[in-house]
Design a protein around this nucleic acid. Structure first.
Length: 339
DNA sequence: CGGATTTGACCAGCGC
DNA sequence: GCGCTGGTCAAATCCG
């Protein structure tokens, strides 16, 4: 049961992908090396989702199967974009989550860790003011651990963590601004989230998670004040931001003058209007009993469960990367290129 | 009043 | 070195 469920979710597409890759594009053998991608991938799945293969967790698998798809992609999709024409998934598959892209490492994890440790050492001498030092402990951009997912609006709002917005920027090449959130569940938490609306499909939001939470997942959202500010009130200040033309913005003449924020509150305004979405599921405790992170989905049945080990384990597999095995998508879009 | 959002400014990384 | 761009800061503002 577990296996067919996962096959339905993942295996079939990635089977297709690696077959495409192996049979059609030997030019890229250097990229893959000589590893058995399929085998390694399956091992990775077991390694990273052991509970899904555990018969004690059949329920998890059963519910996961309703999610229809977990899309994971990366350079491989880019690599084979001109050649690979994925079979469109069932319509329901467009909903929920697409894990696009996990990292921006250019160096190895070990090197990054060493860098971090060294940076910490460099500052440890005057650690009495860690709050001021914290911003200086930034990784270089290309070393930031990064998880990118695509979600529908509902998936975005169902994120269990409490996020506080701290910035918004227009992004070159996108008509939508990018909003920056930090975790407000705990002071000093370095977790960050970026929310960006796909300009190819305004109903899709691209979430980029960076940094790690330094605290347990909240049992409930503990910062609802801000999140709920506009939930039950469709004020002109918080329009649903699916259509730039409808955007209401403050008249400040800023060059940014961006559409009103893609904020949790505005998104939830939209979600509430969707009759199929149960509001209470958006605030459900998404932490499972094993401490796995549960990514947002439409409802409880649609959460994707994975841990950091998931990606780390996959990256350790013979040099190929987790996101190397995936397919896309209902619109044949390769999510790296959102515009 | 406390906490969240907004938004212009600032800063650092990166490419040329 | 310079300019562009993205990420963050922080004061102002908003809202319950």
């Amino acid at each position: 049961m577990a296996e067919w469920g996962l096959h339905a979710i993942i295996r079939s597409p990635k089977d297709q992908l690696y077959e495409e890759a192996n049979h059609q594009h030997h030019d890229h053998e250097d990229y893959f090396g000589s590893i058995d991608i399929k085998k390694e991938y399956d091992q990775a799945l077991v390694f990273c989702f052991p509970h899904l293969f555990d018969h004690h967790h059949d329920h998890d698998v059963a519910t996961t199967s309703t999610m229809e798809t977990v899309h994971v992609t990366d350079e491989l999709n880019q690599l084979y974009k001109p050649f690979y024409n994925p079979i469109p998934p069932p319509p329901a598959a467009v909903d929920n989550i697409q894990i696009i892209h996990h990292h921006n490492y250019h160096d190895s994890d070990q090197e990054i860790q060493q860098d971090q440790e060294q940076e910490i050492k460099n500052f440890s001498g005057s650690a009495s003011n860690t709050s001021q030092l914290a911003p200086k402990l930034k990784k270089r951009k290309n070393q930031q651990k990064r998880v990118v997912v695509q979600v529908r609006a509902a998936g975005l709002s169902s994120d269990p963590w409490a996020w506080r917005k701290y910035g918004q920027k227009p992004i070159k090449g996108s008509i939508y601004p990018r909003s920056y959130y930090r975790c407000s569940s705990s002071k000093g938490c370095m977790a960050r989230r970026q929310v960006e609306q796909s300009c190819t499909d305004s109903s899709i939001y691209i979430l980029a998670y960076t940094g790690d939470h330094n605290h347990p997942q909240p049992t409930r959202r503990n910062s609802l004040a801000g999140i709920n500010r506009n939930r039950f009130k469709a004020t002109p200040k918080s329009p649903v931001n699916n259509d730039v033309g409808k955007t209401v913005s403050k008249s400040k003449g800023s060059p940014f003058h961006s559409p009103t924020t893609i904020s949790a509150s505005s998104i939830e305004d939209e979600v509430i209007q969707q009759p199929n979405i149960k509001e209470e599921t958006m605030f459900h405790n998404n932490c499972d009993d094993q401490g796995h992170t549960m990514m947002p989905g439409i409802n409880d049945e649609d959460y994707v469960v994975f841990s950091d080990d998931f990606f780390e384990g996959l990256e350790d597999l013979g040099g190929y990367k987790m996101e190397s095995s995936s397919y896309y998508s209902s619109s044949n879009q390769y999510p790296h290129v959102f515009c």
